[in-house]
Computed example of a mutant assay.
Amino acid sequence: MIQRNIFLLPEDKCALWAKASANFPGEKLGEIMKRTLSDLSKERFVPDFYEIRRVDVPAAFDALLKLQSTGLAHRHFETDNEEIREVLEIEMTLLNAIMIALALLLDVFFYMLPPNASGGDKLPPTASGVENKPYVPTWKRQPQVGYDGPSL
C-alpha cells in the first residue's frame, strides 16, 4: 500500500484562492481550471496531498472540485457530532503549479497593467477583506421534511 502524506493548505495559499475567486467570478475560475488541466498527464506517482476544506475557501471550492477529473484529487466528508465538513485532497505538485499560474495572472491583472486598463484604480481585495462566514451545508440550509405518522 502506498503511504500518502497529507498537508493542510497554508493560509497564504487559501488567501490566493480567495483572491482568485473574487476576481474570476462564477464559471470563469472553472474555465481557467479546465484549460490548465487539458494537457496534464495522468500517469504519475502521487505521494503528497494538500487537504482543503470548503470552509477555508468557500468561493473557490467548486472550481477546485473540477480537479477530481484528473484522478489527482479526491473529495470526502468529515463528520463529528455536530456537523459534516466537505474536504478535498489535491496532489501537491498539481495544486502548486495551478497556484503559480493564478498568482502570475493576478499579478499581471493588478500590478503590471496600467490602472485604467482594468477599468478601475483600486487594488485587488485581500484575503482579509473576504467575509469569513461559517460554511453551512446545503442539507442544513434547506427545511427538513417531517413525518407525523400514518394517516387514514
Score class of each variant (00 low, 15 high):
residue 48 D to H: 10
residue 48 D to N: 11
residue 48 D to L: 01
residue 48 D to Y: 02
residue 49 F to G: 03
residue 49 F to K: 09
residue 49 F to T: 10
residue 50 Y to P: 04
residue 50 Y to D: 05
residue 50 Y to K: 03
residue 50 Y to M: 03
residue 50 Y to I: 03
residue 51 E to N: 08
residue 51 E to P: 00
residue 52 I to K: 02
residue 53 R to T: 13
residue 53 R to E: 08
residue 53 R to P: 01
residue 54 R to Q: 13
residue 55 V to N: 09
residue 56 D to R: 08
residue 57 V to H: 02
residue 57 V to Y: 01
residue 57 V to S: 01
residue 58 P to A: 06
residue 58 P to C: 06
residue 58 P to Y: 02
residue 59 A to C: 09
residue 60 A to H: 04
residue 60 A to Y: 06
residue 60 A to W: 05
residue 61 F to H: 00
residue 61 F to E: 04
residue 61 F to I: 10
residue 62 D to I: 13
residue 63 A to F: 03
residue 63 A to K: 02
residue 64 L to A: 02
residue 64 L to V: 01
residue 64 L to R: 02
residue 64 L to W: 00
residue 64 L to H: 01
residue 64 L to F: 01
residue 65 L to N: 00
residue 65 L to Q: 03
residue 66 K to W: 06
residue 66 K to D: 04
residue 66 K to C: 07
residue 67 L to P: 01
residue 67 L to D: 03
residue 68 Q to A: 08
residue 68 Q to S: 07
residue 68 Q to E: 15
residue 68 Q to C: 08
residue 68 Q to K: 15
residue 68 Q to Y: 05
residue 69 S to P: 02
residue 69 S to D: 04
residue 70 T to A: 03
residue 70 T to Y: 05
residue 70 T to F: 00
residue 70 T to M: 00
residue 70 T to R: 04
residue 72 L to I: 07
residue 73 A to S: 09
residue 73 A to T: 11
residue 73 A to H: 08
residue 73 A to V: 10
residue 74 H to E: 14
residue 74 H to F: 13
residue 74 H to I: 12
residue 74 H to C: 04
residue 74 H to D: 12
residue 74 H to W: 12
residue 74 H to L: 13
residue 75 R to N: 06
residue 75 R to W: 01
residue 75 R to I: 05
residue 75 R to P: 00
residue 75 R to S: 05
residue 76 H to C: 09
residue 76 H to K: 12
residue 76 H to E: 09
residue 76 H to G: 10
residue 77 F to E: 13
residue 77 F to L: 15
residue 78 E to P: 02
residue 78 E to R: 12
residue 78 E to C: 09
residue 78 E to M: 08
residue 79 T to H: 11
residue 80 D to K: 07
residue 81 N to L: 14
residue 81 N to M: 13
residue 81 N to K: 15
residue 82 E to S: 14
residue 82 E to P: 00
residue 82 E to W: 09
residue 82 E to M: 06
residue 82 E to I: 15
residue 83 E to K: 11
residue 83 E to I: 12
residue 83 E to H: 07
residue 84 I to A: 13
residue 84 I to Q: 10
residue 84 I to T: 14
residue 84 I to S: 08
residue 84 I to K: 08
residue 84 I to Y: 02
residue 85 R to W: 11
residue 85 R to Q: 13
residue 85 R to F: 10
residue 85 R to Y: 10
residue 85 R to L: 14
residue 86 E to V: 15
residue 86 E to R: 06
residue 86 E to L: 15
residue 86 E to N: 08
residue 86 E to W: 09
residue 86 E to Q: 14
residue 87 V to Y: 00
residue 87 V to P: 01
residue 87 V to E: 00
residue 88 L to G: 02
residue 88 L to R: 03
residue 88 L to C: 04
residue 88 L to Q: 07
residue 89 E to V: 09
residue 89 E to L: 12
residue 89 E to D: 13
residue 90 I to T: 10
residue 91 E to Y: 14
residue 91 E to N: 12
residue 92 M to E: 14
residue 92 M to Y: 07
residue 92 M to G: 04
residue 93 T to Y: 01
residue 93 T to I: 08
residue 93 T to E: 11
residue 93 T to V: 04
residue 93 T to R: 13
residue 93 T to A: 08
residue 93 T to G: 05
residue 93 T to H: 04
residue 94 L to G: 03
residue 94 L to I: 10
residue 94 L to C: 02
residue 95 L to H: 11
residue 95 L to S: 04
residue 95 L to W: 08
residue 95 L to C: 08
residue 95 L to Y: 07
residue 96 N to I: 09
residue 96 N to R: 09
residue 96 N to M: 06
residue 97 A to Q: 14
residue 97 A to P: 07
residue 98 I to T: 05
